[in-house]
Design a protein around this nucleic acid. Structure first.
Lengths: 230, 230
DNA sequence: CCAAAAGTGTTTCCGTTACACCCATGG
DNA sequence: CCATGGGTGTAACGGAAACACTTTTGG
């Protein structure tokens, strides 16, 4: 069936974002395999004959982080003829937003994984730099209008933490008071009654997501950042 | 190289939108080939070994419409295991916005192509219905914020025509005066000095796109439709 | 001179912004 | 008691929405 048509290698590459409280970070691997052994790249793998793309992307993310139930989104499929010098290979990029403190550090280390801030990120193989840029642009685009940011934080978090995240995403300072009002006006946050214990000054309120409203409202337009920023 | 990894069939399917002045339409084909001979589907084809995705999508669109230089955008890649009963096949969906009056009708007819409004659209094979829905959602999402609509109109067009297009996309009536002001405030339109001759009442001004500004501002956020609509 | 569609103006309203003050905490 | 960061309030501004009037055209 479909005789005479070509079959192609199809890979999945994951752009894995994390947030450590100060900087937005990217999880990369130093390749101990060919091609481009010894260079940095995104975590990736081939799509198997009996595996859906969704399953494949989850599997590949899990191989490096040990995580399941992570927010992932298919970004784009890259299909230039010469993008992989070994053989014609398509690559479908997925971005993943993970809570950086929950992943399996041991596992990541064993796969030569390392977190990088954007200002110290090494050059990557193939078109992976381009994939990262595209994913970053998508993150900025989407986080401006949709409550994406929560995916990068722990289950309980404070509004100042969320603000730091948005400031990291857009690399711009935001007004505390306006940001707080915008976030609270979405009605997506529930006061847990607890306070952040880590601070040396006034303790901030710990909120958690109202999962139900979050699902429902995810496609509504919000404006988490000042207009004209993206 | 990459021995032991699977290769997969990879197809491209095109969601082709057109606008006839009243309704938003979709160009579909009645298949005279297997599988699903005799049923309706999107125009598609396989990606060739020596062809990039971009070239492939253009080729496939051209085979049905005879058009080149069409606005196309990659939407999503579908990779469920069972989506094509003949053989495991990925499909990358592209949407195309074409000026319905410029395509090669003869060619389209020879390929069993036919335009459908959304309310008379037949059920489609495989996951093509889902692809259409996704593309439609993308059109709504994007046209709300970016000046996409122009791609569907003739080179010279009037503001009322553009408004009818937006009303078709969102299936909602819009306020003439506010819509006109919004569009003109973008500064993307140039008055050609000509007037639309077809009307039986007051003739509307024919505008054309300021291509340069269009390219520059395409990624800026506009609000062509009232908030909360999408 | 009438109907139908196109063009332009104005007021109102609401969300965003820009800014100030108070409160809690640990040292 | 003071420095630091967190929470809340308010006035001013600007863009969007709601609405009305005038103009052009063909019949």
């Amino acid at each position: 069936m479909y005789q005479g048509e070509s079959k192609l290698f199809v890979a999945i590459d994951c752009i894995i974002f994390g947030f450590d409280g100060e900087n937005l970070k990217l999880l990369l691997i130093k390749r101990n395999f060919e091609p481009e052994l010894g260079k940095w790249s995104l975590m990736g793998g081939f799509v198997k004959e009996n595996e859906s793309l969704e399953d494949g992307s989850k599997r590949i993310l899990n191989e490096l982080t040990g995580l399941e139930n992570v927010y992932m989104e298919q970004i784009e499929t890259y299909g230039g003829i010469e993008r992989d010098p070994m053989a014609r290979t398509l690559s479908i990029s997925y971005f993943a937003l993970i809570n950086i403190h929950e992943h399996d550090e041991e596992l990541a280390r064993s796969k030569n994984g390392k977190w990088f801030s954007f200002d110290e990120k090494p050059g990557l193989i193939f078109d992976h730099n381009h994939m990262v840029e595209k994913a970053m642009a998508h993150l900025r685009y989407k986080a401006a209008l949709h409550p994406l940011g929560f995916e990068l934080l722990p289950e309980k978090f404070t509004i100042p933490q969320l603000q730091k995240l948005y400031e990291a995403i857009y690399d711009k300072p935001l007004d505390r008071r306006n940001f707080s009002r915008k976030i609270l006006s979405t009605d997506l946050l529930v006061d847990t009654g607890e306070k952040n214990e880590t601070g040396t000054t006034k303790k901030a309120i710990l909120y958690k997501l109202d999962k139900e409203k979050y699902e429902q409202q995810f496609n509504a337009f919000h404006y988490f950042i000042p207009k004209g920023l993206v």
